[in-house]
């Protein structure tokens, strides 16, 4: 089932797998709770990323990127997942594919922009999902 307006931000097959777990295809109690849990988790993770960006804690930023990558991947939120993977790599002071080593400064500036990008991608998909669960016009 395609989520309206999701275009390339949600992987249909993965998200369908979650929707299939709903006992009631109308109420969608389970998937909704998961998605909303994810909203909370993402908000909190972005908050931590900002704090660690201030402290330039690369290791922590990489871990946070990995953490959010896991759950966004589970939900099939492709764009957020891809950005989180980049954050993970930049935190390891690697380039976005995770191959070449980059300087601290480069890593920091890339982290800053990618975190902002990830946030924007998250807010976009959040809107789409809230509409899907009839919580927003």
């Amino acid at each position: 089932m395609a989520v309206p307006g999701a275009s390339d931000s949600i992987d249909e097959a993965t998200f369908d797998q979650i929707l299939e777990m709903d006992e009631d295809q109308k109420e969608r109690e389970f998937s909704k709770s998961i998605v909303y849990d994810f909203f909370t988790q993402a908000e909190s993770t972005f908050g931590k990323m900002n704090a660690n960006l201030e402290q330039k804690d690369f290791k922590m930023l990489s871990e946070l990127g990995h953490f959010l990558k896991g759950s966004s991947a589970t939900l099939g939120l492709t764009k957020v997942k891809d950005s989180c993977e980049k954050i993970q790599h930049f935190g390891n002071r690697k380039d976005e594919a995770g191959n070449k080593t980059i300087s601290d400064d480069e890593a920091l500036s890339k982290l800053r922009t990618t975190i902002e990008q990830a946030k924007q991608e998250f807010y976009d998909v959040e809107k789409v999902l809230k509409r899907f669960y009839h919580d927003e016009p």
């Binding site: 797998q17 979650i18 777990m21 389970f30 709770s33 998961i34 849990d37 994810f38 988790q41 953490f67 896991g70 759950s71 589970t74 939900l75």
Partner: peptide, 16 residues
């Protein structure tokens, strides 16, 4: 599994 969301999804899948 450390991520609570993945835990929840995985448990649900296994229960299913």
């Amino acid at each position: 599994e450390d991520n609570p969301i993945n835990q929840k999804v995985c448990v649900k899948m296994l229960a299913g």
